[in-house]
Write a protein that binds this DNA or RNA. Structure first.
Lengths: 342, 342
DNA sequence: CTGTTAGCGCTTTCAT
DNA sequence: ATGAAAGCGCTAACAG
């Protein structure tokens, strides 16, 4: 059996209460006693049971993170941003994946986090499924701090940190248009995901602003994965009147599109220009390097964590019922896949 | 306050004991009562507190994973392999990062997992630090199942799943030699990490087998990151007598090397051939695509999880003191960065 | 300064 | 079939 506080109390010849006080550096213990208790705890390899502690303290110092795909550097960076800001405050993070916004997995994960009595949840990805929405509202009304990062339902319901999807996509597509492209394909995300909607809206906006017609045949829908980018790009290239440029709505699909274009022996940007949403480590290793709308992924995590922290015990917004929304601006990083010279 | 089993017992007009029996589908409850209790639990959004449950049951149905870097697709795939095999058995995974084998963080993470009373730990990365080694042995002797994946100390101490590092690196380097290269640089990992040692050994073996001298000046040490690959490659290229080929000991450093070579305007493989350990989604999007030793990352996780499962309650090796070691074979995937034609 | 006691939410004998 | 009570490991009053 694992060593408990009872064991160390017995070994030190004190009560469990005193042992607890000593171990947790609370005042009211004779320094000598404290030292003795601590030494014994150390020696016996005592590790306080967080389950028991959490049960009585009513908080776990754990916060849950829900993301869609750990493999995607965007989410990995969000996690980093969160962890780096909560760790100094003594919090741990536990990560759940929804496997690209699968509503069932998402719901299941959230329920597990709830059952695990995490102190707060940062949702960096939601499918848009109403059940999830409902659960999230329920949890929040039960006093569990929730913050949405990079995704949202209706404004004002939750603390949120967003990214200017529409504006930045518009900028990128407009840039492609400036390069003379008039038929621009887009590989977008599922229409029920707000972020995907907004990026598509940005695409449409850029066309409209330049008096270019919107053509349904230039739109492809993927589920954010490399495979989707690959098949969508192929499909776009096989159009009767194929596009001369493509915008991919995330990094993974951009990677897929890149592979497709390369395997078709087309030259980027001469035969086909390319730009994408999300930066990634590999984007500059490509030839030519990819022009991207760089989401501030790390900051997204950071700011989300700060919002959450401010709702946790000791925070400045513990019982505000007003929810805040910060929006972060992506940076448009022009490299060469769009047609710009080095 | 969150709804507890007491609340639902009260609402159903039964004792908590009966409520518990009903909710957990245990026999000895009147079907009508059971239905009533369940309905109420559902309605009230009752979610059993896993802390309380874990405390009394003495198991949490959670297994801990320690990896070095979530951003690295190799580890992401290991996680996938683990999750896919434990989920059907009702287990959840919680992931800890050691931030590229930082001994302190590693130790801290392991201690947290211990304190959280996980039912088992899969360590997919260890620094080689003796303190960690000691803690791991301590935990194991306390009855906590541990399995090492892709890393190890001494054979026979822990359940382990390994990869044939030396042999496969040797194969890859020999392939470079076959292409006529006589000065081959290697960007390796820290010498205290066994996996890095073995890959270096494989490199040396290939040289020896081909009667090529080992030259210290062709060896660079990095910490597995993109940045390291970049600086090591630059440094190698600036040698008085620079190599004509480079082997990178992991995917991230390969990516860095790729960037460095491209920015020097050198052509791969004409000016410089390249091969690396680890496959990655991006490897085939490069121009030319990267020749790699593809570790079976997903299987590594899968097999590790199976080993762990067999030590958990209901498993076939619950109280065996004999530790097993399976070794998986990577696949050498020849693409074009080594000099092979399409 | 230290010990006794209650209780966090749950499961599990043991009676009834 | 159901309830009362003990206890998992810990913290937090409250006495002494």
């Amino acid at each position: 059996m694992r060593v408990t506080i009872k064991d160390i109390a017995a070994a030190a010849g004190v009560s469990v209460a005193t042992a607890s006080l000593a171990i947790n550096d609370k005042r009211g213990v004779n320094p000598a006693t404290r030292a003795r208790v601590k030494a014994i705890a150390q020696e016996l390899g005592y590790r306080p049971n967080t389950l028991a502690r959490g049960l009585v303290m009513q908080h776990t110092h754990v916060i849950g993170i829900l993301i869609s795909d750990i493999t995607n550097p965007h989410f990995a960076n969000i996690i980093r941003g969160i962890e780096d800001t909560i760790t100094p405050h003594g919090y741990h993070a536990i990560i759940c994946e929804s496997h690209d916004d699968n509503p069932e997995i998402e719901l299941y994960a959230l329920q597990w986090l709830e059952a695990s009595r995490v102190d707060g949840i940062i949702v960096a990805s939601v499918s848009g499924d109403p059940k999830t929405h409902q659960l999230l509202k329920h949890l929040q009304s039960n006093g569990l701090p929730i913050v949405l990062v990079g995704r949202h339902y209706i404004r004002g319901e939750f603390d949120t940190v967003l990214v200017a999807n529409e504006e930045s996509t518009c900028t990128a597509v407009a840039h492609l248009i400036e390069h003379g492209h008039r038929r621009i394909g887009i590989i977008c995300g599922p229409p029920d995901v707000p972020a995907a909607q907004e990026r598509l809206a940005g695409y449409k906006l850029a066309l409209a602003q330049n008096n270019l017609p919107f053509d349904e045949r230039l739109v492809r829908i993927g589920h954010w994965q490399v495979e989707d980018g690959l098949t969508c790009a192929y499909s776009l290239l096989r159009e009767q009147n194929p596009p001369t440029a493509i915008f991919a709505a995330n990094n993974m699909m951009a990677l897929g599109a890149y592979k497709a274009i390369r395997s078709e022996k087309l030259h980027i940007p001469n035969h086909l220009a390319l730009a994408a949403f999300d930066d990634a480590v590999w984007a500059t290793a490509f030839d030519p390097p990819l022009t991207v709308v760089a989401q501030p992924s790390y900051e997204l995590g950071q700011v989300g964590a700060q919002q959450l922290l401010s709702r946790l015990p000791g925070g400045k917004r513990v019982d505000t019922t007003e929810y805040m929304c910060e929006v972060l601006l992506p940076q448009f990083v022009v490299r060469n896949s769009c047609g710009c010279r080095v």
